[in-house]
C-alpha cells in the first residue's frame, strides 16, 4: 500500500490522460467529417502528440464525479438560463435605463481551483449575474447582479449563487461530510497521498 513501483504509477498517470486523448480524437474526426483510415490514424497520432507536448495539471482532486448529479446540474442550468434570460429581457424592455444593479459578495465553502472556476463560470453563464472578481484566497466571488431593488434581493442573489455552488460540489462528489475515509490508514494531514491511493 505504501510503496508503489514507479512503473505502475506512471501507468495510472497515463491512464488519466485517456479521456483527453479520446476527446481530442473525437474532435478531429468530427471536424474532418469523414472516417477514412488516414483521418482515424492521423487523429490518434495528433491527439497523443498534443497530450504529450502540452501536459495539463491534474485538476480533479479526489472525489468521484457523479453522472446523475451532473445531469441534474445541467437540467438546472438550462432552466436557470431560460428563466433568468426572460427576467433580463423583461428588464431591458420595461426599465432599460433605470435598471438597478449591485455588486454582491458571495462567500463560498468549496476550496478547490476547479470547483471555484466551475461555480464562477456557471454564475456568469446565467444572465443577470456576472462574476466581476474572484478572491481565491478568501474564497469569495464578487458578482454583479442585475435586477436588484433592495437588501432582500441582494441576500436572495447571494443564496442563489451558493445553491449553485452546492449543486456543483455534489456533482463533483465533493459533498461536505459525505467524505468516507478510505480503506487504508487515514491520516488527516496526508490527504494528498490518500486521494491518490483511492484513484488507482
Amino acid at each position: 500500500m505504501n510503496r508503489r513501483p514507479s512503473h505502475s504509477d506512471r501507468f495510472s498517470q497515463g491512464l488519466r490522460q485517456v479521456p483527453m486523448i479520446v476527446w481530442l480524437w473525437l474532435l478531429w474526426v468530427l471536424l474532418w467529417g469523414a472516417t477514412s483510415a488516414v483521418v482515424l490514424v492521423g487523429g490518434l497520432l495528433v491527439a497523443v502528440g498534443v497530450v504529450l507536448l502540452f501536459p495539463l495539471p491534474a485538476v480533479l482532486p479526489g472525489g468521484v464525479p457523479r453522472p446523475l448529479r451532473a445531469g441534474r446540474l445541467l437540467v438546472d442550468l438550462l432552466t436557470d438560463l431560460v428563466k433568468s434570460g426572460c427576467t433580463v429581457a423583461w428588464q431591458a424592455v420595461r426599465h432599460g435605463r433605470e435598471t438597478p444593479s449591485a455588486i454582491v459578495e458571495v462567500p463560498l465553502s468549496v476550496d478547490s481551483d476547479l470547483l471555484m472556476a466551475a461555480v464562477a463560470r456557471l454564475t456568469t453563464m446565467t444572465p443577470g449575474t456576472v462574476v466581476i472578481e474572484i478572491d481565491r484566497r478568501r474564497k469569495r466571488l464578487y458578482v454583479h447582479a442585475l435586477p436588484v431593488r433592495d437588501q432582500r434581493d441582494i441576500a436572495r442573489r447571494r443564496s442563489d449563487v451558493q445553491a449553485v455552488e452546492r449543486r456543483v460540489a455534489r456533482a463533483a462528489g465533493h459533498h461536505r461530510g459525505a467524505e468516507k475515509p478510505g480503506p487504508g490508514p487515514t491520516r488527516p494531514d496526508d490527504t494528498r497521498r490518500q486521494s491518490r491511493g483511492r484513484e488507482s
Binding site: 435598471t99 438597478p100 444593479s101 449591485a102 455588486i103 454582491v104 459578495e105 464562477a120 463560470r121 456557471l122 456568469t124 453563464m125 456576472v130 462574476v131 466581476i132 472578481e133 464578487y142 454583479h144 436588484v148 431593488r149 433592495d150 437588501q151 441582494i154
Partner: peptide, 29 residues
C-alpha cells in the same frame, strides 16, 4: 462566452467602466 464576459466585466470594474452611482450596493468596493 462566460470567460470573455467575465474578463470584460473585470476590466470594466478596474478601469471604471461602470457607473458607481447606479449601483445599489458595491460590496467589492
Amino acid at each position: 462566452a462566460p470567460i470573455s464576459s467575465q474578463i470584460i466585466g473585470r476590466t470594466a470594474y478596474r478601469t471604471a467602466g461602470l457607473d458607481r452611482d447606479l449601483l445599489l450596493r458595491d460590496e467589492l468596493a
